[in-house]
Design a protein around this nucleic acid. Structure first.
Lengths: 233, 233
DNA sequence: TGTGACACATACGTCGTACTTTTTTGTTCC
DNA sequence: GGAACAAAAAAGTACGACGTATGTGTCACA
């Protein structure tokens, strides 16, 4: 899943990022560049580049004479898709999934309302197409196909909102949906009610009805939150 | 304003980041590490570290034999506070300010509702204190003092929501408020209606009234958007 | 015994160079 | 004209040296 073998840099970054965000290196712990270079059998050059990236994500802090210190969680750039991926792969996935879903429940209704105003004909068409795709894959253990349509659907809504900040949340939503599908044991097919709501949302957007779009999206979000409550601690 | 002189790295990163996000190096343009090293009179090591950070923000892409290419805006990590700062300092500040304000208008009402449920006594107290501070600095050209209270106020609300993703948006809100105050010519004192709404929001949170908190915050957001419409193109 | 200044050790910061790897481009040969 | 091959260009990696800040411990002095 995580990118790899396209450079030493990437591998080291991924490994360290995962270790830190999974709490394996708790905040306050100190890493030394020389040790890391030895451990990964790469030059200090590579390690330093990785550290700089980690530093830009506020995962670590590098100080002279003391080393590279892991920073407390509150300072992390939790909107960085890479960080999100690491955390979803790590130990506190449930908490992460929940806070991300709450975020979605705040953003997506507003985005859907805007989409109903601004969506182009093409976007409406693709939205409908994806909704139908969700219907078609909603039964019979076609979870992967369903997931693909689901992700595409929400991406379109976010893009159609015309707001850059919303649009760029598409990756986050994709991570959440993928994480939900892959990491939660899903015995059953997707909730039929959710499928219906997506179809109705596509209609509302197509008909240019912002209030309906917002309301329906809120319902979808409520459903997602409820699902988390049922399936997670 | 931007951090500086705490290492060559920081200076180069800041300069390049600003140049890219301000459109001075348009998407598609190519940078060469050797040239940059010459230009900034630093070693290639420093340049490479900077490039790696820029790459992690998806501002550039580095490929062998071709160089470092500036990526299209759609791929940038626009939630990175650093990127936000660069863009707010650059040329398309109005657009950026608007999309960020729309984001706030989606997030903060929900966050305020959650805060009304979850805020601790301390948080309520500090919130009230900040609201009073806003009142105290709302007249007589005390914009800097007002700004400080305003930022602190919204930070508390976001933190009190208990949701990590909301809480981490505090920096973004701070940048927006600061950008609004500093870059927009503000002849007058803050809108008295906004001040009142903040006081009432503090009350609603203290009294544990989520609906009121959400409604009042929506009003604040509408006011902020309206203000942008009036003062910006 | 307590306190302050000074020296030292340490780990990151920066540099320069040499070498490797990938990818584009251009050339040659069929 | 097209395919195989050779050369060049630029990033990727490595290594070793020195610079620099900073925590720590020591020593002298009160």
């Amino acid at each position: 899943m995580t990118t790899q073998s396209q450079g030493l840099h990437t591998h080291v970054l991924d490994t360290l990022g995962l270790e830190i965000s999974s709490g394996q290196c708790p905040p306050g712990s100190v890493l030394r560049t020389d040790e890391l270079a030895q451990r990964f059998d790469v030059s200090r050059t590579v390690i330093r580049e990785v550290i700089r990236v980690l530093e830009s994500m506020h995962l670590v802090e590098s100080r002279r004479r003391v080393g590279v210190t892991v920073r407390p969680t509150e300072t992390w750039n939790v909107y960085d898709p890479q960080v999100i991926r690491w955390r979803l792969a790590g130990s506190d996935r449930p908490r992460q999934l929940r806070s991300l879903t709450v975020l979605r429940s705040a953003i997506e209704p507003v985005a859907a309302g805007l989409a109903a105003r601004h969506a182009t004909a093409e976007q409406c068409a693709e939205l409908t197409e994806r909704a139908l795709g969700m219907v078609a894959t909603s039964r019979g253990q076609q979870l992967e196909g369903y997931l693909e349509h689901d992700i595409a659907f929400h991406r379109i809504v976010l893009n159609a909102s015309g707001n850059e900040m919303f649009a760029r949340l598409g990756d986050v939503v994709a991570e959440v949906l993928a994480g939900r599908t892959h990491h939660q044991v899903m015995f059953e097919d997707p909730d039929p009610a959710a499928v219906t709501l997506h179809v109705r949302l596509a209609e509302a957007v197509r008909e240019g009805d912002p209030e309906a779009a917002e309301r329906i999206t809120k319902e979808i979000a409520v459903g997602a939150l409820h699902e988390l409550d049922v399936l997670a601690p």
